[in-house]
């Protein structure tokens, strides 16, 4: 399985790097997974590319393997979730929530969607909605 993925965020590179390292936007899973993260200016008017390599970290991916054993699910989809959340929050100010996925994009949600109808009050509170 591939260990690398990338996403492009529609903002200048210095802003993207600053937000990535800020307390408010730091992506928790990618940080804990000890992956190699690099930034590149995207061509034309497209913004900044963020590249993540799970095997490029200081432990050569071993920490990631341990994390995977503990969590019990493949790391790359969770890395992608983190990247998507970062892009959504930076570009739009929020994480899109649907009725099927009220917490926003989550790899483990893919097989267990809520039906596409409104949440009850307690469900909405649990999903962390404002």
């Amino acid at each position: 399985m591939s260990s690398r993925t990338a996403i492009t965020v529609n903002r200048p590179r210095d802003e993207v790097e600053r937000l990535w390292h800020s307390d408010e936007y730091r992506p928790a899973y990618i940080d804990d997974a000890d992956a190699a993260v690099s930034f590149r200016t995207a061509p034309g008017d497209r913004g900044t590319e963020i590249h993540v390599d799970l095997e490029g970290g200081t432990t050569g991916g071993k920490l990631g393997e341990v994390v995977q054993k503990l969590i019990g699910s493949a790391p790359l989809p969770k890395v992608k979730d983190d990247l998507r959340h970062f892009k959504q929050r930076v570009e739009t100010g929020e994480i899109p929530r649907s009725d099927g996925s009220p917490e926003g994009e989550q790899a483990q949600r893919k097989l267990k969607q809520r039906p596409a109808q409104p949440l009850s009050d307690s469900e909405a509170a649990k999903a962390g909605a404002r």
């Binding site: 492009t8 989809p77 570009e91 739009t92 649907s98 926003g104 994009e105 790899a107 893919k110």
Partner: peptide, 26 residues
């Protein structure tokens, strides 16, 4: 459903908005 801020929305390609699908992985 389109966010208005991503590259696609800025180029008026609203039906391929990059940010509005919380099941993007699917």
């Amino acid at each position: 459903i389109a966010c208005g801020n991503c590259w696609a929305c800025r180029h008026e390609l609203y039906s391929v908005c990059e940010n509005s699908n919380p099941n993007a992985g699917l």
